[in-house]
């Protein structure tokens, strides 16, 4: 008998993406550039985060026509974003055959209280997190993959670094906690007890955790790998750079060989300028996408 949509199949899909780069694309042409550069998947969306930031207004799930165009253009997996809590956007993306859905704070939330109950779906989900409480709640809801929230569309790596360090530090703390400390930790973090028990048993998160939100250079991608990311999402970084093809290839290579500094230096030398960056302190609290999600 063949069973689809099992936890192992959904989490396993993310395991296969490890050590790779997932790139935001807004059309088939960009998807092909990403695939040719060695991306392990593409994320289809209507606008990259920096443009969402610039445009303002409500950011929704991608037009199904773009999703279909991208699905037809490449043989690597296609991911797409839906708004937090938007059951129907998620179901529509699932019916379009996307391979992974990102319930994402980059889009305007549809629900300011509840996230999707993601284990109801056959398609797997990835969600953003800043700390172990957010990570464990998303896993508890059925997310099969995590990523740092970072601060999307800023070209500033500082928030992704903060979130990766925080989650990994908390995982280490939980791994050495005694059993009788775990329930209070669950209470303090607002984290499901069972998920914390699983983290303690494994000594690591039970799902893959990628870096996202602010990766703008090959050095940024390598830094996140150094800090323990399983792989890297690049949003605005690729197609807002001077030479997207070269840039995409350089990010892929820097992610694979993140400790080969000579290589990374060589890659960086050949690139034009990266996207312009934004200092996080210039963003008001309501402009910070990372504050979305509960």
């Amino acid at each position: 008998m063949q069973q689809t949509g099992t936890e192992r199949v959904k989490r396993g899909m993310a395991e296969m993406q490890k050590g790779g780069v997932i790139m935001d694309v807004v059309n088939a042409e960009q998807a092909k550039i990403a695939e040719a550069a060695g991306a392990v998947a593409v994320m289809a969306l209507e606008r990259v985060p920096s443009d969402i930031r610039a445009a303002g207004g409500v950011a929704r799930a991608c037009d199904p026509r773009i999703v279909e165009e991208v699905v037809d253009a490449v043989s690597i997996p296609v991911m797409a974003k839906c708004r937090i809590g938007h059951i129907t956007e998620a179901r529509v993306l699932e019916s379009l055959g996307v391979d992974y859905i990102d319930e994402s704070e980059v889009l305007t939330p549809a629900d300011e209280v509840f996230h999707l109950k993601k284990d109801d779906y056959t398609v797997p989900f990835v969600c953003g997190c800043r700390n172990i409480g957010e990570a464990a709640r998303r896993i508890g809801e059925g997310a099969s993959m995590l990523r740092t929230k970072g601060e999307p569309g800023t070209g500033n790596i500082v928030e992704a670094v903060r979130h990766m360090r925080m989650v990994n530090q908390e995982v280490r703390q939980i791994s050495v906690m005694s059993d009788d400390e775990l329930m209070t930790e669950a209470k303090n973090q607002g984290a499901p007890y069972d998920v914390l028990r699983e983290i303690k048993k494994l000594g690591k998160l039970p799902v893959v955790n990628f870096a996202a939100g602010g990766v703008a250079t090959p050095q940024d991608a390598a830094l996140m790998m150094e800090l323990g990311a399983d792989g890297v999402f690049v949003g605005s970084g690729v197609f807002k750079s001077e030479n997207p093809e070269k840039f995409a290839k350089a990010i892929v290579e820097a992610t694979t060989h993140y400790q080969d500094y000579e290589l990374i230096g060589r890659l960086a030398k050949e690139l034009g300028s990266a996207m312009a960056g934004i200092d996080i302190s210039q963003l008001s609290l309501e402009d910070r996408m990372q504050e979305r999600g509960w």
């Binding site: 689809t4 099992t6 055959g97």
Partner: peptide, 15 residues
């Protein structure tokens, strides 16, 4: 043949 059982929603386990 690649992806010959379908997309991710068709991924499965079996004995």
């Amino acid at each position: 043949a690649r992806n010959s059982f379908g997309r991710q929603v068709d991924s499965f386990e079996a004995q």
